[in-house]
Nucleic acid binder design. Structure first.
Lengths: 285, 285
DNA sequence: ACTTATTTACGTAATTTTATTCCAATATAC
DNA sequence: GTATATTGGAATAAAATTACGTAAATAAGT
């Protein structure tokens, strides 16, 4: 994870590597970051007790194109409200701390993904789904719940959907794939053997293989259309959490895309489904 | 829902009150806000087709001390997530627009929830789950996928879990609830009859009823411990999207809470589960 | 261990870029 | 047709960056 979202955290961590004047600048900024975003290079230099070029050099070592750019990044970083440096929950965390960390991580992942959405792939996926005879969603483990969510969502949008959690069922479906079948594989790592094999089998049929997974993974290789979700997660020690959220939102995007493709005339259909559920709920008082 | 801390929203809403050149500037900024934060007053003036002083005046009418200050505020506003005034996807939206809207909504919901987490309820829920003989997660529709996710997650953390999607199964389970049973109901509206009835039944047994739902809903009333998720959504026209994301993150929080309660000695157990999955994946090259 | 060379760090001052102010010109309202 | 508001040009001011020289630190040689 090189794109550290939190600038303050980066500064803090690089502190030992800085030389004298850069350290002074860092100290001044960490002291009062809000202030730093508002001040000019001259006043910050004054507060830090260094020259203006030193501040400028400092900004460049942290990847900014110059002082104004640095201020902008700093402002962004402060506004996103991601407070914690160490993103992982520690055993020493208390109730005030770890829930916030987890929310921070989630928010962070969504913000990062938002800036870098694979729109062309999304568009193609919408095309495939819109025209599909049927769509088979498949995920294992954590991704099974995502697949389930997808099924539920697309069903409402009148897309013929199937979900399976059984790899053997999937294999059987895969070999029988024909024109108009869309196999939609969901996986964080893109390395689950059962999934990759099924994708390979399906891609040898007339069916279309869409994947939502990590870029460059085996699963991505075997798909006709891959929606990259490159959220970095330490899945060696933790369960995929943030990538799952991103996947869900992307599925929302796909569903919205399909609906938009259907056009406005489609709305009454949604209303009918909605109405069918009315009697299962207590009315709002 | 008018959280007008958002600069873009303010600009949008003040649009009719602006004079010609100010409107041009507004249009240019709304067109591509990210770009606006990066450009100089000269280039923005160029894009908008007005003079530099006009841009400057524009900034001042929106409460900024000048152009750089305005850029800063804009950057902050963008980073905080919410970009679109009208949060709903419109049929006129193109691929550049609606995915961003959906992400914005999601991020916004998480930010809002983060500021207002029901920590006491979360702590009590962690207590209940940690000490449970078994935990029965239950959700219908969209919440079924959330329940499924919960099952998967807590299973890894060595909590004895069950999920059901069948209301009849649930009813049967509910009547047989005993000491140490935790019924965990997930619902956005908290008004689904099947769920509320099951909660009512279960609460008359020795079992503990935990709910994650909207404050003041019938389901909340019938639970011993309710984790309020008050994300406002237009579920009359759309599926619950953002509330389920918040629910998922809160489940992550609960799972983390249970793990922390277990203590550090529990870590090897997680490693074992992780290892058991190793052979199902292709190794990272 | 001391000197000298070489690199690196830092600041001064000049330059350039960027933003703001002032004022005149034009458009709009009354 | 006058008054008022709106706009852009040019001048000014502010801010940031670059170029360059000096000082400090480190390395190499004596």
């Amino acid at each position: 994870m090189t794109t550290e979202s939190n600038l303050l955290a980066t500064i803090q961590s690089k502190l030992p590597d800085l030389n004298k004047s850069e350290a002074k600048v860092a100290a001044a900024i960490l002291q009062n970051p809000e202030d730093a975003t508002r001040s000019s290079i001259a006043s910050l230099a004054g507060v830090a007790g260094v020259s203006e070029p030193s501040v400028n050099r400092f900004c460049k070592t942290f990847g900014a194109s110059g002082f104004p750019d640095f201020k902008l990044q700093l402002a962004r970083s402060l506004a996103s409200g991601v407070r914690y440096v160490s993103r992982a929950v520690a055993f020493s965390d208390d109730i005030q701390t770890f829930p916030r960390k987890l929310f921070d991580n989630a928010i962070n992942a969504l913000i990062t993904s938002r800036e870098d959405l694979p729109l062309p792939a999304i568009e193609r996926a919408v095309d495939h789904i819109s025209q599909a005879r049927r769509v088979i969603f498949f995920g294992l483990g954590t991704s099974a719940a995502v697949a389930r969510d997808a099924e539920h969502k697309f069903f409402r949008f009148n897309v013929p959907v199937i979900t399976h959690e059984d790899p053997l069922m999937l294999r059987m479906l895969a070999v029988s794939g024909g024109v108009g079948d869309v196999f939609f594989f969901i996986s964080h790592t893109g390395r689950t053997k059962a999934l990759v094999e099924a994708a390979q089998i399906a891609s040898n049929t007339e069916a279309t293989v869409v994947a939502m997974t990590h870029e460059g993974s085996p699963l991505a290789e075997h798909s006709h259309c891959c929606i990259h979700v490159n959220v970095e997660e330490d899945t060696d020690h933790y369960l995929p959490m943030t990538s799952r959220l991103v996947q869900l939102v992307i599925l929302d995007v796909l569903a919205a895309g399909v609906t938009l493709r259907r056009g406005e005339s489609f709305t009454p259909y949604l209303a009918r489904i909605k109405d069918s559920l009315k009697d299962t709920r207590y009315p709002t008082s």
